[in-house]
Structure formats: C-alpha cells, structure tokens
C-alpha cells in the first residue's frame, strides 16, 4: 500500500469530520437530515474568498512563510464562519422553524433539499461555475518520510482541523451550552424539564454547525478549489461519516469522517479515483445493515 493514499485520506477525513459535526448536531438536535449543510461549506468558502479578496487590497495578497495564504484569509476565516452561521440561522427563521412546529421530518428534509438548490443556484449565479482559488501560487509538496508528500497548506489544514476538533470537544463537555446541546440531542423532553431552553440550543446549533461547515469549506477550498458544487458533492461522504460514527455523536462524526476519508483514499489504487465516492456509499450500507446505531451511537 502506498502511504501517500493514507496521507491523502487523512486530509479528506479531517474535512469530512469537521463538516460532519454540524450535520450530526442538526440531525440529533433539530431532528432532520439537513441537505443544505453541504452548501454551508460552499457558502463559507465563497464568503472567505470575498472577504479575503477585499482585505488583500489593504494587507497584500502574499502568503505567510511556506503557506499559500496570508493574513487576509486568516482574518476572513472567522468572518466566513460567522456569516455562514448567520445564514443558517436566517434559513431556520424563514423556513425550518415554521416547518418544525408541524413535527414532520420528511417535510423538513424536502425543504432542506429546496433550500440547498436555491443556495447553490444563487452562488453559481453570483460567482459563475468557474473554479476559484484563494491563491494562484504554486505550492510544492514537501517530503514527510515514508514516501509521503504534502503541501504546507495541507499540513496546516490537518493540524487546524485537529485543533478545531479539540476545541469542539472542550465546548461540548466543559461549557453549560455544550452540555445543553448534548442533553437536547439525547432527550429533548427531559432537557426541557431540566430547565434547558430548546430555542436557545437550536440557535447555538445553527451557529456552531454553520461555522464548522464554513471552516471545512475554507479548508477544502484551500487544498482543492472553490466551486458552487463543492459542498453538495461532499454530502454522501458526510452522511456516511455521520452515520458510521453514530448519529448525534460528535466524536463519532469526527471519527466516522476520518474513516470514510481514509477508506475512500485507500480504495483508489484498486477501483480508481472515479469510483471512490462509491466507497462511502458501501460503508453507509454496511453500517446501516450491521450496526445501525453507528460506532459511537447508542441503540434507541
């Protein structure tokens, strides 16, 4: 086995894990499969592109050290996360909040399909289908040993995704809001009688889910390219990772994303890159058949 495939899989897995966290939180707290989540990645990537582009007029566009990105993108990242979180909240206010009151999951799922299409079309209209890049500088992959090579940007993405995962763990286990989110995810009725305001938790879920999706979107844009379909194309592996890890489990989403990313990459030498998406589908089917609650999930 070529270790390079493993390294590529770790990079993809880190992005899928980050993106999957928002999906699993929405699934468990808001009680529906949110198909617009993939487009939150895209929105985050484009929002960072716009903000970084504007800032580079004042701060210059050159990268820091070996990285292709500079201060404009670093500053644009939290702005893009906030903007995507705000868009998620707006969509909830306009659409999902009203439909949630009816309590029919399928209506919410179909509405999220519609919202996904609308968001994607708007992005395509505003930015055209042409791929965009945060930087046009060519990055040379560095040898890391064991025949593995990676660009500085790729290394930064893996490290930052790890840091984000740790920060998320601290948020969910050490803060009152994090515990409230886990409580609502596990048992909404009990959470209410324990004094947790569900509306506050729903707002926090959209902020966090949207923000993390934006983070994954920027990382994806940094290491691949920015396209209107970049997030939507990741939906299947995102869902596969979430279900593999156990719906509602944040560590499960991170681990599930990593497993799907690595499995896809390791399958490439055998089935070819064109079919790598099928690996996520097979994993999804296998988990649903063998252990529907996922690796970290609990039986309901």
């Amino acid at each position: 086995m070529n270790p390079q495939f493993l390294a590529d899989g770790i990079l993809t897995g880190a992005l899928l894990g980050l993106g999957g966290v928002g999906l699993t939180l929405a699934y468990s707290i808001l009680r529906f499969a949110n198909f617009v989540h993939g487009d939150f990645l895209t929105v985050g990537a484009y929002a960072a592109l716009v903000v970084a582009g504007a800032l580079s007029q004042f701060l210059g566009g050159s990268g820091i050290g070996p990285f292709s990105f500079g201060w404009p993108l670093i500053i644009a990242l939290p702005v893009a996360m906030a903007a995507t979180g705000a868009l998620a909240l707006l969509l909830d206010w306009l659409l999902f909040r009203r439909l949630r009151r009816r309590g029919e999951e399928i209506v919410l799922v179909m509405a999220s399909f519609g919202a996904s299409l609308a968001v994607r079309s708007l992005i395509e209209f505003a930015f055209t289908p042409e791929p965009k890049y945060y930087s046009h500088d060519l990055q040379i992959a560095m040898p890391l040993g064991f025949s593995v090579r990676a660009t500085p940007d790729q290394l930064a993405v893996v490290v930052l995704a790890g840091v984000a995962g740790i920060a998320l763990h601290i948020l969910l286990t050490r803060t009152a809001m994090g515990r409230a989110m886990r409580a609502v995810a596990e048992n909404p009725a009990l959470a209410r009688v324990a004094g947790i305001d569900p509306a506050r938790v729903v707002r926090a879920t959209w902020w966090l889910g949207g923000g993390l999706a934006a983070l994954a979107g920027v990382f994806l844009g940094l290491t691949v390219q920015i396209r209107p379909y970049m997030g939507f194309d990741l939906l299947l592996p995102l869902f596969a990772g979430v279900i593999l890890g156990g719906v509602g489990s944040v560590p499960g989403a991170l681990a599930g994303g990593m497993i799907v990313g690595v499995a896809e990459a390791l399958a490439v030498p055998f089935i070819g890159a064109a079919w790598r998406g099928g690996v996520a589908f097979l994993l999804l089917l296998a988990v649903l058949l063998v252990r529907p609650q996922g690796l970290f999930g609990m039986e309901r």
């Binding site: 009152a176 515990r179 409580a183 048992n187 324990a194 004094g195």
Partner: peptide, 15 residues
C-alpha cells in the same frame, strides 16, 4: 441523560 456522566447530569441541573 444516559450518554452523559453522573457529574454532567448534575451540572445540567445546576445550570
């Protein structure tokens, strides 16, 4: 809250 620890359950109550 079965997935949470004893202490976390109590922390939920104390919030």
């Amino acid at each position: 809250f079965a997935r949470m620890t004893i202490r976390e359950n109590l922390e939920i109550g104390a919030a």
